[in-house]
């Protein structure tokens, strides 16, 4: 189901302001990668370029061997979770999650019964059972976030893309959801790319982290690699003060002696 994603030399500018200056990034199938960087670093632009919501000025995005440049949004089949969820406000939770299935052309649209089964299954997966008749306005932030996730998963996406998934939540809910998302990723195994400006979040959650600054990727690596050998002075400054509350595996990695260069 999940495919590797390759981003090659992607450039994008808004008017005279360059947002991405030739970004290359390889993401393995099933990998969970964080795009980390200060605001204005181009991380959201990169995510939207992978999604197809922005058209790059040059460069390519590949899903497996498939060049995504020629694909429409529908053909790309990506699951995108928006920063403020972008739930359809006039639809119930059920309607929101079912949207992607109901929107398919008649020939490939599942029957209403199998849509229902699928939606209920997803609602169990994101632990929202029983809330199918609520409207988004009647949900808490964390619940909305999970509806958005279930809605994205409903179309069986090739890739899952999350824009600041926890940005709009309060600190406690954020911690809970982080753990939960990591667990969900382990179970479903989607190739996942998420944007964050929160170092702790990136280092705790991601298999690998790509740190962006001024439209270029300054370093890509696991949390341990980046902490042990920051590639540029910017990275050293940026990761300063990270509370390494990461997994034991990563903590061990940190404690491993690193060759002095």
């Amino acid at each position: 189901m999940s495919v590797p994603v390759r981003v090659r030399d992607v450039e994008k500018s808004y008017g005279r302001y360059p947002a991405l200056k030739g970004v290359t990034l390889n993401i393995a199938a099933g990998e969970l990668v964080a795009l980390l960087g200060p605001s204005g670093s181009g991380k959201t632009t990169l995510l939207r370029a992978v999604a197809g919501l922005e058209r790059p000025d040059s460069g390519n995005v590949f899903f497996g061997d498939l060049d995504a440049n020629g694909l429409s949004l529908r053909e790309r089949r990506i699951g995108f979770v928006f920063q403020h969820y972008a739930l359809f406000r006039h639809m119930t939770v059920f309607g929101n999650i079912a949207f992607g299935l109901r929107a398919r052309p008649r020939s490939t649209r599942p029957s209403e019964a199998s849509i229902k089964a699928k939606v209920l299954e997803l609602m169990r997966l994101v632990q929202l059972d029983g809330l199918e008749n609520r409207y988004p306005a009647q949900l808490s932030g964390g619940q909305r976030q999970r509806v958005a996730l279930a809605r994205a998963l409903a179309i069986e996406p090739r890739v899952l893309l999350l824009d600041e998934p926890f940005g709009a939540l309060d600190a406690r809910v954020r911690k809970d959801l982080r753990k939960w998302l990591k667990d969900l990723h382990r179970r479903t195994g989607h190739t996942t790319l998420f944007v964050t400006h929160d170092q702790d979040e990136a280092f705790e959650l991601a298999d690998r982290i790509a740190i962006l600054n001024n439209g270029v990727i300054e370093q890509v690596g696991t949390a341990a690699e980046i902490l042990a050998t920051p590639a540029t002075p910017f990275i050293s400054g940026f990761i300063e003060g990270i509370s390494m509350a990461a997994s034991p595996r990563e903590r061990q990695a940190l404690l491993r002696p690193v060759a002095v260069q």
Binding site: L53, L73, R76, F82, F88, F99, G100, A103, P105
Partner: peptide
């Protein structure tokens, strides 16, 4: 525009998005 973008990423056509997302809103 994010609801419309969401509809499009979920595979909806332009007309479907117009009638099911934008117009009801």
């Amino acid at each position: 525009t994010s609801e419309e973008e969401a509809a499009l990423t979920l595979g909806a056509s332009g007309w479907y998005t117009f009638f099911r997302v934008m117009l009801p809103n």
